[in-house]
Design a protein around this nucleic acid. Structure first.
Lengths: 255, 255
DNA sequence: GTCTAGAGGTTGATG
DNA sequence: CATCAACGTCTAGAC
């Protein structure tokens, strides 16, 4: 911990904040403040008790007592300004897009300054791309006898996730989505149209997703397209076994 | 401030956290921890210094030193568990979807407990809906002689932002978007298709947005759809004048 | 409660 | 550096 002040006056709080803001410190300010934002949109937030966090990369968060998301924020601040008399005015300006967040503190309860060291990266499984790879690894996840021709095939309408052929030698366009919606259906339709044009033959379109809603499924049916459900757990499992084998290879090569 | 402990042992940290978690307090824990998540996806995060915030509605945030967004999180936690021996294990479980976040603290620097009072609501201008309203208020923003028939018209394919007729009595489907992209085009196409089916007549589709990119514009052209630019500032201005008149009315009624 | 689409989205990958 | 699409998206609103 770099610094911790309890119940400072406005002056002292301003000093501490000014000292650490715009430097690679994490500053947590608990206090009573109001917020004005102007930029891509415009907002105002009346006085209330909030937790303000200024991160080491200058990200700014203004959290109320509830919700995952901050009430106001700025992903990256280019210039800071601290002013004080009766109140503490903290201004955070971003250049592109041109945006400003103004915090006006009437009272500051605590200011806590730390310098976090965190070199670990999040390892996440279950991305859409993990599904692609699982399918390429094991096309039977989608359908028996399916043969993958190409992944990320480029067409004038965009990239096809997986391009394949079924046992009856029909072309199959596969669109993978974690969270499919109506638009996904049209996207798939467009790829199918493209491929039908290109190969002048009937083409199947399959939407592969870990979940589906009735309405989107209906819409898919209307378009003569198909749906195959994949279990996210299967995907993660297949991905992990793949990952393990790679790790083994790596450690082997290190010997 | 409800409680503030500096450099507590694992035991003491566990006690404080256990006392306040699952109650309407905001708990900020700075310390060295690792995180495992399993649910819709699966992730692991090795040890690092982090700021963990548990909000009064049970939202959980695990922030690293950088970025707007937390490295791990849970928007709403249903049950908490605190265990401790050499390490502090904090488990946050959510029932729907079934997800668990596990935090393992090796060291706790500070625990800060507050109870934030914040009854103010964010007043935000610049939403997409502000554009809808401006258009309804003044359809000429989009095109001379345009008459709005309906806003938020329901179709089997979803909701049409603004449904209108042009001076030549053609139906016009308007999709409003702050940040239009390829999906927006598909979405508009979807609505146009629906309306063409329903009324068995030619239907115009107009994308109204404060900005546009060349590629999306091309894509729009390909689909035979149109684009009209609106200035966000005009929209905010028109909305504010509307809002001001309402405010005036309110203060008037308070007299 | 489920479904739908927006968000000051943010972020990371890609050309 | 701009563009594009995913996100453990989250969240509010409509039905």
């Amino acid at each position: 911990m770099e610094e911790l002040v309890e119940d400072p006056g406005i002056e002292e709080a301003a000093e501490v904040i000014e000292r650490y803001v715009a430097r690679p410190y994490t500053v947590q300010v608990n206090g009573l403040c109001s917020v004005n934002y102007q930029g891509r949109a415009k907002s105002s937030l009346d006085r209330g008790e909030r937790l303000v966090v200024i991160k080491q990369d200058s990200a700014l968060l203004v959290h109320g007592p509830e919700n995952y998301q901050p009430k106001n924020w700025q992903p990256e601040v280019d210039s800071w300004n601290v002013e004080s008399d009766e109140e503490l005015l903290l201004t955070a300006k971003r250049n592109d897009p041109d945006e400003t967040v103004e915090l006006r503190f009437e009272d500051v309860e605590t200011v806590l300054v730390t310098q976090m060291v965190d070199r670990s990266e999040l390892k996440l499984r279950g991305h859409e791309i993990d599904i692609h790879e699982s399918i390429e690894e094991d096309p039977e996840l989608v359908e028996e006898g399916l043969k993958v021709i190409e992944r990320e095939r480029k067409t004038p309408a965009g990239y096809i996730d997986v391009f394949a052929r079924d046992p009856e030698d029909r072309y199959v366009v596969i669109e993978v989505k974690r969270n499919p919606d109506y638009n996904t259906v049209l996207q798939l339709q467009r790829y199918v149209d493209e491929i039908e044009d290109e190969f002048a033959s009937e083409v199947r379109g399959i939407l592969v997703a870990p979940k589906m809603t009735d309405n989107v499924l209906d819409y898919l049916d209307d378009h003569g397209l198909e749906f195959v459900e994949v279990e996210m757990e299967d995907v993660i499992a297949s991905y992990e076994s793949l990952d393990d084998s790679q790790t083994e290879l790596e450690s082997f090569s290190e010997v």
